[in-house]
């Protein structure tokens, strides 16, 4: 089955880490993801301060500065994973978080095929 693994980061732990440490943690995570078999579409996102949300209301386009969902956690990146079942996907999601100081949570979502 194909799963999208959505990597969320907690805003609070982001504040605790220096931006350099954040970047290093992100690089290390990306390297780990790229080293996995059966991975595709690895995407790393810039921070929510760079986000713009687009809505169309009665033909009028409305742009809002910031993410659609404003919360303490934000989506930091995602990738696609092709494995046999949910247990394999969650095991990988757990392994990726070992020794990661940035306070991650990974949401595992099956992809419509």
């Amino acid at each position: 089955m194909k799963y999208a693994l959505l990597i969320y980061k907690a805003g609070s732990s982001r504040d605790l880490l220096s931006s350099e440490a954040m970047k290093q943690a992100g690089d290390a995570l990306e390297a780990k993801i790229r080293a996995l078999p059966n991975v595709s579409g690895v995407v790393r996102l810039r921070g929510i301060e760079a986000a713009t949300t687009v809505r169309v209301d009665e033909g009028r386009t409305l742009l809002t500065d910031g993410p659609f969902v404003d919360s303490k956690e934000f989506l930091g990146g995602l990738f696609l994973l092709d494995v046999a079942n949910l247990d394999e996907a969650t095991a990988i999601a757990a392994r990726l978080q070992e020794h990661d100081p940035s306070g991650l949570a990974i949401e595992v979502r099956p992809v419509v095929e």
Binding site: M1, N85, D87, A89
Partner: peptide
């Protein structure tokens, strides 16, 4: 069905 929860006895480590 949708999340792919396996129909199996878990492997030893689980």
């Amino acid at each position: 069905r949708d999340a792919g929860i396996p129909f199996a006895v878990p492997p030893d480590h689980l």
